[in-house]
Structures are given as structure tokens and as C-alpha cells.
Design a binder for these strands. Structure first.
Lengths: 283, 283
DNA sequence: TCGGATTACGTGCACCGTAATGATC
DNA sequence: GATCATTACGGTGCACGTAATCCGA
């Protein structure tokens, strides 16, 4: 019977060029590898090595065998990878979101709709990378700004969020009822952690703006509390706790400042996620 | 380390449907197989079997693993097959011929040009199957009536053979200098062993003819010697020994009765056969 | 003489089979 | 109780490592 250690042996000898080097790489003794290769030759009924010279070297037949051995071993790796991946997929639900707020909304909902599963989420700053991840199966679902183009998708809008700015009461614009992004040109903003697509959106819409990204929400709150620097808020963010008291909240009236979040999965996964779609609220 | 006996185990369990049946099929005890599958689960770090019911059965993950196991095992079979085939190809030279005479001509020539190789030949009754065998690599070379159409071939004409008929001196046509196939309509012929393409050719060209195929040349000679039945000969066949004395030899004048034999191999094999091509005579 | 492969030899692990136990119908 | 899988328990083969030998440069 050709066992895998024989294949690892010949593949490694082909890679390293000698028994000695291969034995070292495989963490076995040289004699063990030598015997293994003799056994492999016996199993195959053919000479794989050229032993005429001082340095025993792979014969053409041996190189052919090594090539096939690599194929077998990569198929074996494929088995391990496939099983581990399927096992993981059975235990955890992975989705991505273009913004943090939908994650807060979905967390309790998914925990109820997917009992026994671990939920993992990741943030992205645009739809495109999440769609790519859905296509290649890296993600089970995603929260996007708009459903992907083309067929093969299931999606449902479930949340709307409107961005606004936090201004110090002494700021010249603090009395306005609404603002446009462009009104805040040249300002420096404090950012509360990762905000997904909102950050590139603001960079694009607010000319000459600067952004102070803070690693923790605490750091951001501290800076806001001890300065006049503006920050961002959203109408949905009340769920996360109270905002600093020393700011006025003014919503943006640009259409881009209002996001509609869509929960999206591949159509071929819709069956197992039917419960999730049913549990989603309306925006 | 995932060894192949583990893969054979799960593949067989998937095929047979139970540990008991699979263990029987693999010629191992049931406990041995049970332990092997526990080890496989340990190696993969995942449960492959559903042990809740009385009959331990493959879980979905186990079926996935079994599927991949079959892939690995077939890759392993591919290794054995490839090595054995390459080993054989290095030792033996295989060619086919549409007629027996070229084989007699080539035998000593190939023995000289391919030292250390065993030469195997087989007969066919038309070009087509030999061309197919050349294409798929089952044959190293072939003797054909005409070079194959299309590119990718190396060929050289090296022998011409003309068929004739052996008639009893008392046959009405025995005085003719030449004959046409059609002149012998309705006759019954004795055949000397396998004659390749000549047999279907004669069936096609001689209306209502019957053929008595003999297993051995001896049997055919015996029938010829003790009857007036006609047979076939060729101008090249003198090499094989004398013909029966009680017959006259009359060549056919139909153009089909003269065959030109071409030695053919795939262009990508021409390099290793250069010696053979050089040694071939002119027709 | 030295680097590298093979042979010799004793050891230990891992897999095996038989037998007993457990679990489910 | 019957059937099938698992656990328990010795036994053994096989691959291992160390050490000795062989073989070309």
C-alpha cells in the first residue's frame, strides 16, 4: 500500500535534490527516508532513482512519480481544507457590512434566527469588496448600500440611517436646522472608530476636510469633550448610548447623507437564511 | 498524518453504507475500521459521523470527506498507472501494422535500431484504429497504407507489396498472366492466418467469395496441398518460405492489389525514432 | 578522507484481531 | 434478543533511530 509518507518523501527529495536535505526537511533520519524510497520503488515495481553515481538522484521515472505525488498530496490538502471549511461554515455565520450601525441592529436578530451559530461580522468601506466576498463564498451575507447588479441575489432593505454633524454650540453654523457637506469645508473632524463607507463619503463630499481617526470610542469622546472639534452622529446611533452633551446635532440634507441598508445573500443560500429575512424589520 | 487506509475506510463506508459491510469489503475487522474512522476524525478535527442513532452513519461532513477521499485515491491510482506506463514505455516499443509482411521486414531492423527494447506488434485491418491508437499514445508507431491526414506526423514509405492468387493448375484461369479480383467471383479461398487489411479488401473486391480462415499456417498449407481451393500470395511473401508446389501464382492487376506501406509516428516522438527512420529501406 | 547513501540491529509505537461491552431497535 | 458500533486487551509488524558499512569524489 502506498502511504502518504512515501509520497511526502519523494516529493521532498525532488524539491531538495538529495536524500540528506529531504530527510532533514521531513524531520526523519536519512536511513528512514532511504528505506521509504526503496519501499516506494517496490510498491510501484519500478526504479525511481539513479544509483549508479555517488549521489543517488531521481531518475526520469522518479520525477514523474514526484510530480504525481504532489498532485495526490495537494488533493489530500484539499480534503483537509474542504472539511475544515465546511465544518466552520456549519458553526459560524459570517457577514460583512458597509457601516457599523447595521451590525448593532442585526446582532440580536441573527443570534435569535441562527441558534447555535457563532456570528462573525466585518466592516468594509464600499459595496464592491463585500460583493466579491459573497461571490467567492467567503461571506454568507452582507449589508450593502444597494443590491448587487445582475441575478442570483436575494436582498431586502431593512434600515435607513441619516448622517449629521456634532458642532460645538459656539460654532458659527451651530444654529442651522440642516447643513450640506460642503458647508463644513476645511474643518477637522473627530472620528469614532471605524465607520465603514461614511468615511470615504465624507472625504469625497467635504472639501479640504481633515479627519482624526481614534482607535477607541473612549479616546474620541475624550477629545470631543475637551475641544471644539466637530464630529459625526447618526439618527440611529442613539442605540449606542448618549452623545456628548456639549454638542448640537445638525443633520445633513444632502441625499447621500441618508443611507438605506440592504441585507444581501446569494440566491443559492437564501433557503438557509429564510428565517433571517423574515426577521428583518422594514426600514 | 492522514494515511491512505483512512481514506479507503471512509470511501468504502460511503459506498457500502455501514461499518460492518465496509470492514468486510476491506478485509479488516469492524473494530479496526471503527478506530480508523475515529483517528480520521481526530486528524481532521471534525465529526464525520452521526452517532446519535443506533446505526452510526456518515454525516454531511463525512460525505464531503468521502468524496474528497475518492479524489485522492484516484490521484494515487493515477500515480501508479502513470509510473507503470512510463516504465513499460521505456522498455518496450509497440507498433501496429495493417499487414503482416511489414512486421517481418521490420523485426530485425527494429531489434537493431532499438537495442535493449522489447518490440511488440499488433495487426489491424485498416489505418483508422492504428491512427487512433497513435493519437492516444497506445502505440509508438504504425505501418499504414497512407500517412494520416493533418499535421503532427512523421512518415516514410518503406515497402511495396503486390497481392496475387494461388490457383490449382487445373483451374480455368490458371493460364492467365494477370487477373482482376472480379475474375474470381464466387470462389472459396483458403486464408493463411491473419492478413490484416487484405482480408476486408478481398471481401469487398471479389463478389460472392467465401474465405476459410485457418488458425495456423500449417492448417492452411495442409488444405491447399490436399484440395484445389485457391489461396492468396504476395510478391514479398517469399521471405516466409516456399509456397505449395501444386499452385500457380498469378498477380492481380487491380491497383488496390499493390500496397505501399508507410512507417508512421507522431511528430513529437520522431526524435527518439530517428534511428529507425534512417534504417528503413526504400520501397 | 569526507559527504552521502545503504545495511544492520534493536526498540517502540500504532494498528490489528479477538473478546467483551454498550446502545438501539 | 438481534444487530451494529465501541471499548478493552494482548500481540505483532513495521517504520523508526543509532550505529556500522559502503562507495565515489
Amino acid at each position: 500500500m502506498i502511504e502518504t509518507y512515501l509520497l511526502r518523501g519523494i516529493a521532498e527529495i525532488d524539491r531538495c535534490g538529495s536524500f540528506t536535505a529531504a530527510a532533514k526537511a521531513l524531520h526523519v533520519s536519512q536511513p528512514a527516508l532511504s528505506r521509504a524510497m526503496q519501499k516506494l520503488e517496490g510498491e510501484l515495481g519500478a526504479a525511481l532513482f539513479d544509483r549508479t553515481a555517488g549521489r543517488t538522484v531521481l531518475a526520469p521515472l522518479g520525477r514523474l512519480a514526484a510530480e504525481h505525488a504532489r498532485l495526490v498530496l495537494s488533493a489530500l490538502d484539499g480534503l483537509s481544507a474542504a472539511v475544515r471549511e465546511a465544518d466552520r461554515a456549519a458553526r459560524v455565520f459570517r457577514y460583512g457590512s458597509v457601516a457599523p450601525m447595521p451590525v448593532w441592529v442585526l446582532a440580536p436578530l441573527l443570534a435569535r434566527a441562527l441558534p447555535g451559530k457563532t456570528v462573525e461580522s466585518r466592516l468594509a468601506d464600499a459595496d464592491a469588496p463585500l460583493v466579491a466576498a459573497l461571490e467567492e463564498g467567503t461571506l454568507d451575507a452582507a449589508v450593502l448600500l444597494r443590491p448587487p447588479a445582475g441575478g442570483g441575489w436575494q436582498s431586502k432593505a431593512f434600515l435607513r440611517e441619516r448622517l449629521g454633524v456634532l458642532l460645538s454650540p459656539v460654532h458659527p453654523l451651530a444654529r442651522r436646522k440642516t447643513l450640506r457637506f460642503a458647508d463644513l469645508a476645511g474643518e477637522t473632524f473627530v472620528l469614532f472608530g471605524d465607520s465603514g463607507f461614511w468615511i470615504p463619503l465624507c472625504r469625497r463630499k467635504i472639501p479640504r476636510a481633515e479627519f482624526l481617526a481614534q482607535g477607541t470610542t473612549e479616546a474620541a469622546r475624550h477629545i470631543v469633550a475637551n475641544s471644539d472639534l466637530p464630529g459625526f452622529y447618526s439618527d440611529q446611533a442613539a442605540r449606542l448610548g448618549p452623545y456628548p452633551g456639549n454638542r448640537v446635532k445638525i443633520p445633513f440634507r444632502d441625499p447621500e447623507a441618508t443611507a438605506t441598508y440592504h441585507f444581501v445573500c446569494r440566491a443559492d443560500r437564501a433557503g438557509t437564511l429564510a428565517q433571517v429575512f423574515d426577521a428583518l424589520p422594514s426600514p
